[in-house]
Design a protein around this nucleic acid. Structure first.
Ligand SMILES: [Mn+2]
Ligand SMILES: [Mn+2]
Ligand SMILES: [Mn+2]
Ligand SMILES: [Mn+2]
Lengths: 143, 143
DNA sequence: TGCGAAATGTAGCCTTGGCTACAAACTTCG
DNA sequence: CGAAGTTTGTAGCCAAGGCTACATTTCGCA
């Protein structure tokens, strides 16, 4: 009896892994936003928009660099590598889809945006596909 | 120009706060499960089901005790306080609703269960209400 | 041009949440 | 009843992600 359910463990482990990646994803997305707006992402601006102190942003960017997602030189802006750009695009698309799904099931826009910031990091690729299919069916039905 | 959007900061801050609570919530839910099944929750069993080493579970339980959610004596089982029970019930209900919503928009059952383990912690009360309303409307429509 | 303000870097601290290794207590059973 | 096995506790390590305080560099402008 009482065999520990492996799929339950899997769920917890996955949630932990995704939580660990969440920060990286938000930084990458933010850097892409700033690059689009100003041509470069400055540490101070990244920190301000994420609501953290600047040394916190510096540490996170160091981690991005270590993982090959960004590059930077001292006292200069931060730039995404190709891998970083690709991740940013994926993250941004997922964010949009999650917000759209929340809206589609009746969550008010402001709240959808707030909750999506956390939810998005736990939505797997296949679940995202399901969201897209659902949205397509809804869109077609009602216009 | 370029005023930092306060609602965006709010979203990131909220996601961070919720991520910090996620672990506590999973422990409380697990302890409630084990209490229902065995009458008490042992450290070894908690650790096994969450997929962590036992000292990790011990530390987390210490935090639960510090926050008034659980009690325990050395070499004995862990028990929830009234506050802990209340949180467990709330967490369990939210978990069910999140899974149901994912299923309702077309996510396969196994995947819904896996993704819900992470998503649930970022669903606010009002968003949960919206999910329930959506599910009720779906259920009524099709039976 | 150069000085003051702003941005960035760096040092060092804290908490959380992982881990391994080992010590101590409890339980089971011969 | 006591030895062996199981469970729990404890010590100590690590990385991530927060922070403040202070040093240094860059930038804007008088
Ligand atoms: Mn996010
Ligand atoms: Mn996002
Ligand atoms: Mn969970
Ligand atoms: Mn859960």
């Amino acid at each position: 009896m009482t065999e520990t359910d492996p799929s339950q463990i899997k769920g917890f482990n996955r949630a932990r892994e995704r939580a660990a990646r969440a920060l990286l994803e938000d930084y990458v997305e933010m850097i892409a936003d700033l690059a689009a707006e100003f041509g470069e992402a400055r540490i101070t601006e990244i920190a301000a928009r994420l609501g953290v102190a600047h040394p916190t942003a510096t540490k996170a960017v160091a981690r991005l660099k270590r993982e090959g997602l960004a590059v930077s030189r001292p006292y200069r802006g931060v730039f995404l590598t190709e891998a970083g750009e690709a991740l940013a695009e994926q993250v941004r698309a997922r964010h949009r889809t999650v917000v759209a799904l929340l809206r589609a099931v009746g969550v008010p826009e402001d709240l959808a945006e707030l909750d999506a910031e956390g939810i998005e990091h736990h939505v797997s690729t296949r679940t995202l596909k399901a969201f897209e299919a659902f949205l397509a069916s809804q869109g077609g039905e009602k216009g």
